[in-house]
Design a protein around this nucleic acid. Structure first.
Lengths: 333, 333
DNA sequence: TTGTACGCGTTATCAT
DNA sequence: ATGATAACGCGTACAA
């Protein structure tokens, strides 16, 4: 049994043509007689020929890999996005692969460099470690690079970002319009742009409505269920708020648990809102009023954006809008 | 400005040695004088030389890619596993990349073939579409292949699987021991081995305790929050159970929502259990009694298993154990 | 339109 | 221990 994979030479011999012709056939090169094409295809099939990806990559200096570098695989609301992006990119004939940086600046850098050295056709990254300047700098020598969920100065047109400030402001205003004045804000780590923006949105909503926001926010280092629970536990010791605006659904879930444990009802005693609309948000008790992030639309957008970048086509679509989903966790005072 | 990347030839010229020597240096080949090594390293650094991955892959016929093929990125309890596996594999110097099949048998097949054609060092797949025979067959011509979360006949030693039957039986018995006799079982799609096994566990627990299981289970096509909600909605119309055993936490979340909406309390009127212990399970009201799946340990196990497979080393570790986490969702009758 | 021959950058082989 | 050279499999300029 001969283990060695057949190459163009074997196919050429089998089909009675030159290796160049075989190559042309597989490149959809038009300059090839249809009869010969048939012969080549038949011969390839017969001996089980497959193009060698690496020989091609070596000579062409490019590949059809598209890489996504996440922060962490565990981020609940990213998973649906990744899935949708994969569909678009797969369908376009590219090989889509995902990795993560685990919030390490060094790993972000290493993986961009790695994928670039591997001549990836395109890279999408969710980066929190690299500075704006570093990103601009790296992008100059890297494969086509798209930044997700962040606006980088001097690189805006390659960034996909959302008006988190505006959305967080809107949902805060929803609470204000329903009569709430003392509104607590549960923040994620504000060194990350996403959380910082949301924080700004909350502050603006409060200020514009002449409400005191100064001491009514708590910044946690991680935006998890657990953090929400722990923070709320403390906050309840000296409660002077009727509503809580959380920067994501997980914080809200944790906070809801603490509130109930404290013997308070939602939304009877305390109203609460989330952000992202993860699948669980509809099935908590009460169901959570939150900001819906259309995963499929966003993932699709990412896919089309990186593909247009690869093909150097214009891409002027504007980012999908989010919408507030009103459920049962907010009471009118 | 010269865009072209330097090759071994440039380095060789710069260092005044032969290309072969340069190659040897970068392969940690011992047969090279330390003084020359210094010269080569210095020259490489000076002109910014980097090994070409594809030239190497072409001649060696192998790479250090390790691929993971998921079903879907959205599966909540897999994300932590992926993360842990990535750490192990990254640290071992391999390039770890993740994709998904979206439950398509064809995609499962395509991606295994793709990764094999790309000479991946190893592949891990969570497969639900391919039959046992097909897997055995494919494995013969593929890169080293590990199957996760499934026991494949004739391929057992390359499979990582758990005693889901036993665990589901145990948690059902927990309910029985607390006095429950009418226990509803919410199933995922039983065409998948994981769900089928859990189903068997429930049945065995009931039978061994001489309880009727025959009509007390409902099979859903998807094991989501929504499915749990919808199923429970219907089941409550003609309630004759005091407890519900769910095959995963999402089903339980949805069911809990429906139960509360129906005006019933948990665990007062109905006790409920989940499976997987996703992060939210601790923060529902009441917190959910469930089976804990140690994500970090399992991911680590996967990583070490595929690495041992790649290196053709023996690997006899046994799979991590799960444990039942008793929280507040079960009442003693 | 088709074939010939060379080059991509590396490692392996065989001398030295 | 080091160097010269072939070989990996493909794409393409150039010749036919």
């Amino acid at each position: 049994m001969n283990k060695k994979k057949p190459s163009v030479l074997e196919v050429a011999k089998e089909a009675g043509v030159s290796p160049a012709t075989v190559s042309r056939v597989f490149n959809n090169n038009l300059k090839v007689n249809s009869e010969m094409k048939e012969r080549v295809l038949a011969a390839s099939k017969k001996i089980g020929y497959k193009r060698n990806f690496y020989a091609k990559a070596l000579i062409e200096g490019k590949t059809n890999f598209v890489g996504l570098i996440l922060t962490r695989f565990e981020i609940r609301h990213y998973t649906g996005i990744v899935s949708a992006a994969e569909s678009v990119i797969d369908d376009a004939g590219y090989i889509f692969v995902v990795t993560s940086s685990k919030y390490s600046k060094q790993k972000e850098q290493e993986k961009i460099t790695l994928f670039s050295d591997l001549n990836f056709a395109g890279i999408v990254i969710i980066t929190v470690g690299l500075s704006d300047e570093e990103i601009v700098d790296i992008s100059k020598k890297s494969a086509p690079l798209i930044i997700f969920d962040r606006k980088v100065k001097g690189y805006e047109d390659k960034c996909i970002y959302f008006d988190y400030c505006g959305y967080q402001k809107s949902i805060t205003e929803l609470l204000i319009n329903k009569g709430h004045q003392d509104i607590l804000h549960l923040c994620g780590p504000t060194r990350l742009q996403v959380y910082k923006e949301k924080f700004n949105g909350y502050i603006r909503a409060m200020k514009e409505n002449h409400l005191s926001a100064r001491i009514n926010y708590i910044v946690s280092d991680r935006a998890t269920n657990e953090a929400g629970y722990n923070i709320m536990k403390k906050a309840l010791k000296n409660r002077k708020f009727t509503a809580v605006v959380c920067q994501n659904d997980q914080l809200a879930f944790g906070a809801m648990s603490a509130i109930k444990e404290h013997g308070l009802t939602i939304p009877g005693d305390i109203s609460i809102t989330g952000f992202n609309d993860v699948p669980e948000a509809e099935f908590t008790s009460p169901s959570l009023t939150t900001v819906n992030f259309d995963y499929a639309a966003v993932g699709n957008f990412i896919g089309r954006k990186i593909l247009s970048e690869i093909k150097k086509e214009k891409f002027t679509d504007s980012v999908p809008f989010f919408k507030i989903i009103e459920r049962k966790s907010v009471k009118t005072l």
